[in-house]
Structure formats: C-alpha cells, structure tokens
Computed example of a mutant assay.
Amino acid sequence: MFNRVFLVSLLAASFSSLAAGDKIYTDISGTSFSHPLINGQVATASPPVVWKPLSNRALLAARLPPRSPKFVESLVAKRRPSAVDAISGTATIIVKDENGATLGFVGKELTDFDTFPITQDSTLALTVTVVPSPDPTSDFVDLKIPGQPADTSFVGLALGAAGAAFGKGNAAYGFMGPISESTTPDSDTNNVGGASESQIWTLNPSTLVLSALWRGESGDPIPLTLFADGTFGDLDFAGDLTAFVNKFGDFVQKVTFVLRPN
C-alpha cells in the first residue's frame, strides 16, 4: 500500500478518502476548482509551491550529474542507459523543468488527493517498471508499480472536472495517480478522479524521455503537457495548459519526465 504525505503545513484541510463519484469541485460560493474539496473545504497551498532545481550537492547525493562546474561533471559517470536497461528492471522518474534542470523525482508518497507529487529526496522516489504494449505495432508502454494491488498498480491519468476533450482551447486536464491498467478510458472507480487510462506513455529509447498522450474512445492520440500544480502540490496533465490556467487560475510549472534505471 502507498504511504501518504500530509501537507498539513500547506493545505487547509485534512484528507478524507472519497470515491470518484463523490468528489466536489465547487465551493458554496459557486467557485470551481481543479482539485476536489476535502471535507467541504478548499485545500490549497498558500503560498503556492514553487519547485526549484536541486543543488549540486543534492544531485550528487542522488547519483545525478551536477549542473556545474565542468570539472566536477567529469568526475561523474556519463554512461547513458540504453532502452534495454530501462525496461529490464526497475526505474525512477526524474522531473525536469523547461530548461532541463532537475527539480526532483516523482514521489511515492501520495498527496491528500491520491495524486503523485514531486519529491526532492531520492529515497522517496516512486519505483516503476516499464511494460511494453502486447500489441507489437504499438509504441505505448505502461508504468507498473511493483507490489501494488491491481486497482492501483499503474501510473496513469484520471480525468479532472473539465471533461475529456483534450486539445487546443480546451481546459480538460487529468490527475497523475495510481490507477488500474487500461488502454482506453476506464470508468472503474478510483480514488484519484474520473475515468482513467494507464497506457498513455511513450518512451524515447535514446533520451529515456517519457511523453504522455490521451487515447480517447476514437481518433488519434492527443499529446499532453505534464505540469506541476503548485496550488495543490501535485503532478497533472493538460491538453492546453494555457486554457487550463485561464479556467482555474492554478500556479503551474511545465515539466518533463526522464526515466532513470535503478
């Protein structure tokens, strides 16, 4: 089972587990939020969480190359794991900002919303295995979480409160959380959000960069933007991040994921 990280110092309410159908996203004044209310209260971070790049000391402690100086970089092994390495064992997921600086890792301790956060402690990084699609013509993979029950054993997207019409001009978004396996939207109840989908990931074999695409009931897969939501302290997906921010007003940081074999 997952441990939970309680953001008591940041959030306005304590956690209460809710079934997806019971989640409420609008307060008594009629204001809509991207994340569900907890015990009838809006649970936001104040001020918003701003993730800053790891220091060189923290990078070295996590066995990652430092940003500078150059002579220190030469002391760190530069071997880039191959895709075979990446899928033959367990791995963690490095979270980088738009400039390629490392912010931390996808954390294994869930937020109050049953979503994955960023952790800057490598010992608290989520461990996954890469599971290729059984369809030999597909480039999609699953990210499986070892040791979890079937209904929470995959890293994927659970729909938020703005529907599934991902794309330009639409505020549709999803939470990143532990869900069941699916290649199309699955309506099975989960603790994260609405209908969920796990096989949304593709892996670049050269860079080990993970990308996410929503696979709807019909049509082509839609590219998703990965982002850290500083207002609610977790990791999420959007089809149009600007449209999402315009609708909900969350403080966000666009991020990228890079797989790191253990």
Rank of each mutant, 00 (worst) to 15 (best):
T207V: 09
N191Q: 15
G233N: 07
L7Y: 00
N191Y: 08
Q199K: 13
P205F: 03
T129I: 08
D220I: 15
T207D: 02
A101W: 08
N3A: 08
V255A: 06
G160P: 01
I38R: 04
S68I: 05
A158F: 04
S9D: 11
I222Y: 04
F15G: 04
Q41L: 01
Y25C: 06
D114Y: 05
N246C: 11
T102Y: 03
D229I: 07
T231W: 02
R215Q: 06
N191E: 12
L7C: 13
P261D: 15
T202A: 13
V49A: 08
R63G: 02
P117Q: 09
K168D: 09
L213Y: 01
K144Q: 09
S14V: 08
D142F: 01
R67G: 03
G174T: 06
V106W: 01
N39C: 07
A61P: 00
G169R: 10
N204S: 03
H35Y: 13
F154A: 02
L126Y: 01
L124T: 03
V76Y: 13
F251Y: 13
S196K: 02
L110C: 05
V141E: 00
D112G: 15
S32P: 01
V155S: 02
L124S: 11
S29C: 15
G177W: 00
D186I: 08
G21M: 11
A58M: 12
A101F: 05
P53M: 13
E181I: 05
S29Q: 14
A165C: 12
N170H: 12
S122L: 05
V155L: 09
S180M: 15
I93T: 00
P81C: 07
Y173M: 07
S14F: 15
Q41I: 13
L203C: 02
P36D: 08
G219A: 12
A162V: 07
G163I: 07
A58K: 08
P221D: 08
P36K: 03
K254T: 12
Y173K: 10
